[in-house]
């Protein structure tokens, strides 16, 4: 048990990569998936499960809040020009966690399939967080599970 490396009263910290060897990075206020390189610093993702499972759909995955550690931002989904869109908002993730009701725009169903995971918007069911497979483009939410986007991501717990 000497491999204890981390102990924190805060959400678990992760790095997220997609199946195309791309990692999530923060550029300005934009999250992007870019090819992993030496000089590249992946964004540290904060993740905490929502406890209000009973008010949410079952069997779609674990409802979770996703955020960025520095600066303190949270991922949320909202309609822009009539289209569901993924955005970042200045928000403490633990405040969301402590809300008496589930904060649906900030919630994603985390579903696992083998080694990869998908993140489906709770506010817009059927819309998944996606990165474009050629890299360099911002993370979006999409209904299109085709070739142009990948919705499969892998987790790495920071330790």
């Amino acid at each position: 048990m000497n491999d204890k490396v981390l102990s924190s009263p805060y959400p678990v910290l992760w790095q997220i990569q997609d199946v195309n060897h791309q990692v999530w990075v923060l550029q300005g206020r934009t999250l992007k998936a870019v090819p992993r390189k030496d000089h590249l610093v992946p964004v540290t993702v904060t993740l905490i499960s929502c406890q209000h499972m009973e008010t949410l759909e079952k069997d779609r995955g674990n409802p979770i809040y996703l955020g960025v550690k520095e600066p303190e931002l949270c991922l949320f989904c909202t309609e822009v020009q009539g289209q569901p869109t993924l955005q970042l908002k200045e928000q403490n993730i633990m405040e969301l966690y402590r809300q008496p009701q589930p904060m649906k725009p900030f919630l994603f169903y985390h579903d696992r399939s083998g080694r990869t995971s998908t993140f489906e918007s709770v506010a817009f069911p059927g819309w998944f967080i996606a990165s474009c497979s050629d890299g360099g483009c911002p993370l979006i939410i999409t209904q299109d599970m085709g070739k142009a986007y990948t919705t499969d991501f892998g987790f790495t717990v920071l330790s």
Partner: peptide, 13 residues
Amino acid sequence: RDNTNARCWRVND
């Protein structure tokens, strides 16, 4: 490590 299960205490559900 890659599970995101919620953990909580409940009484009367």
